Computed example of a mutant assay.
Amino acid sequence: MLKKIEQFLKRLLLSFLFISKKRKGRYSSNPVITSNTKVLFVRLNRIGDALVSTPLIDLVKKKTNCKIYVLADKKNHFVFSNNPNIDSVIVFQKGLKGFVSILKFIKNEKIDIIIDLHDDVSTTVTYLFAVSNVKYKFGLNKINSEIYTHTVQRLDSSSNHIIDRILKLSELFGFTYMHDEINIGYYPKDENLSSAKEIIEKKFPEKKFLLGINISAGSDARFWGVERFKEIIELLKKYDIYILLFSDLKDYDKAKSIIDEKFIYPVSKDFDKFVSGVLQVDLLFSPDTSVIHIASMKRIPVFGLYVKYKTQDMIWLPYNTDFDCIVTEEPTLKNITVEEVKKKFIPFIEKHLDAKRSTKL
């Protein structure tokens, strides 16, 4: 009952905010953006949400050279922290105190433009946009569009990649771009990249094709199963390749049940160290979309396992990268059999093994 009352009050407050903003009207033209313009991008939630937002952020910096701030979540702020195109990253703290703190920051920094990078409606972000005193507020045309001063069409989520949907916001900045300019904007630290290369060279002194298999995902529903991973690895033993397993801390015991510990990349809470290892592989197998997006940075071919449960949205495919996948409409990956994976994955890896051999000739 209390939950229903809370939801009703939220809807009531949002309705009031929409009405009050509607009375103020909108601007008929887009703002002129210079190197002194201060732009605040807002992207809360998870790692993958942050990663798919980075192409727009990097493009805006490249095309306008404005000052860029990012309001992120405690679960994804590190995605933005080493980005040379971002001047400052602010971590959103939940609760009234955190909300007031952000409003003060916006006022003190004299933010010129605030941009909602969310493809769907966030109640928290809607409140923030509605009450913040910023002249220009950009967003996709959604049911909360009255809180923005400028909107662009939200592309159909069933037929357009999430990155392309976010990139629609570039129209409000008045620049164009080429498709091949687009890439995930994550910037690993040099020391972690060097360390990753050393770790892999020590594990695998001989130069061979390196297949990375990531077993972890954001939820247990996307863990494919110890025995299934073991079966796939057994099938791959006939190929002259190395296999390196990636896992997060919670799945480390499962990883040791799948493969000898010496073939597991060192597990760390440091996302940057994990990314640096993934970027060394020649091909990636993964059920996790954030890791798939990371691989796409270097155009590493990807084979993915996807859950598409009760949604018509396009799955979060790697961008500008060769891939294949299996998609289930069940809530977990449990119904995807080894035989199904074998039929699609084996031809996929063989194609890239052949391509790798051809480049050496």
Rank of each mutant, 00 (worst) to 15 (best):
N183W: 02
G304N: 07
A72Y: 12
S358N: 05
K10T: 13
S158N: 13
K256N: 12
G185E: 10
L40E: 07
R43V: 08
I199A: 01
V131K: 03
I264D: 09
L236C: 09
T123E: 06
D248W: 12
N183P: 01
K24Y: 04
G174T: 11
E234N: 15
E234Q: 13
V226H: 06
N82R: 08
I33V: 15
K63H: 05
K262H: 09
N141T: 04
H150Y: 08
D313F: 09
Q93N: 10
S216H: 14
K237Q: 15
V291T: 15
G218W: 13
P84W: 09
I166D: 03
T289M: 14
K208C: 08
T64D: 00
A355N: 10
V125G: 09
A72N: 05
V275E: 02
G218T: 14
D87E: 04
I213D: 07
F41C: 08
Q7P: 00
E340K: 14
I241G: 13
T151W: 01
D322E: 14
E234R: 12
R228D: 03
V278F: 07
M1C: 05
L333D: 05
K356Y: 15
N144S: 09
V134F: 15
L103R: 11
L283E: 09
A130Q: 07
F274P: 07
D251Q: 13
K63R: 15
P31I: 03
K62L: 05
S28W: 00
A295H: 11
D354S: 11
N183F: 09
S81L: 08
S276Q: 08
V79H: 07
S29E: 11
N85Y: 14
P347R: 03
K74H: 13
I33K: 00
V134L: 10
K237H: 14
S290Y: 04
D120A: 12
K63Q: 08
V281C: 12
I200C: 02
E181Q: 14
S20G: 00
E231C: 03
L283S: 06
K21E: 00
T123V: 15
F323C: 06
I111R: 10
N141E: 14
T123Y: 12
F263V: 02
I115V: 15
I215E: 07
V100G: 00
L210Q: 10
L169W: 08
K356D: 03
T321S: 13
V278H: 01
F274I: 13
Y239M: 05
E227Q: 13
D324K: 10
P31K: 04
Y319G: 06
K21I: 03
D120N: 13
I57E: 05
N65M: 01
N83R: 09
K107I: 02
S219Q: 09
G304K: 09
I215D: 03
K360M: 03
L210D: 04
V121N: 02
L117G: 10
D322S: 09
D322M: 06
Y127E: 00
I102F: 12
